[in-house]
Design a protein around this nucleic acid. Sequence first.
DNA 1: TTTTGATGTATCGACAAACAATATATCGGA
DNA 2: TCCGATATATTGTTTGTCGATACATCAAAA
Lengths: 127, 127
Amino acid sequence: MADQIESELLRGSLDLMVLSVLAQSPKYGYLLQKALSDNSQQQIKLSAGTMYPLLHRLEEAGLVSSRWDETTGRRRKWYELTAKGRKKLVKQAELWQQYASCITRLLNEIQLVVPASASAPAPAPQS
Amino acid sequence: MADQIESELLRGSLDLMVLSVLAQSPKYGYLLQKALSDNSQQQIKLSAGTMYPLLHRLEEAGLVSSRWDETTGRRRKWYELTAKGRKKLVKQAELWQQYASCITRLLNEIQLVVPASASAPAPAPQS
DNA sequence: TTTTGATGTATCGACAAACAATATATCGGA
DNA sequence: TCCGATATATTGTTTGTCGATACATCAAAA
């Protein structure tokens, strides 16, 4: 079993989210920003200064591939998950769930967790 | 409600975890390491080089208070949550849950979530 | 007795990532 | 014409994590 949560997870759940969104369909950067924002109820705003270096890192790591679209006046660089990226995504998702349940358990122990289902709009707790 | 997930959450779920463990009872550093490890089924190992600066930051921010215990040969610095720290913990916990359900929802959409395991509170099966 | 390993706190330097700011360019509409 | 949205990219700043290192106490094994 997992011996220790990878420290990347502490910082790097962004990678997981980007890979997830790209797994839905290929996207170019600007579109990815919108998609991530939409998928998170506008909670996650990925700044350009974070996103582009991140995409370049993912590509360098072979997790995504890119292709320029110059057919229109606007240059767009489409990113797509590679097979390697998909495998990585699955692995990262597993690790994240372990990590998340660790924290959830911790919060449970000090009674800070509202029961709430994942997909429900979460009926706002008092205050 | 929440306008945007604090970027600290991306990197800094460690703060949340440390505050949570201290909320259970006051601890000194070495004890905190053990507690965090135990509470996470040995999945989270907090290195000294990470922990002590972190504790100092938390103290500087007024979230914990410290007190030296010199009664034994071993010098121990006990840390305790302040009222401010407790408030922060509640807030951070809420933010974290929002963040976590964002990711869970994302993973759900691409069918990467396993139907829950052992200790997790098992969210509703269907949306 | 000496040495080893666990306990206990702390700092330093290397490294990586997030971000704001900035630059550049296209395009549609007011 | 000008402005705001679209679109990609880099730079410099800042912050947190981590391994390495340092120092000290103590109990038990060698």
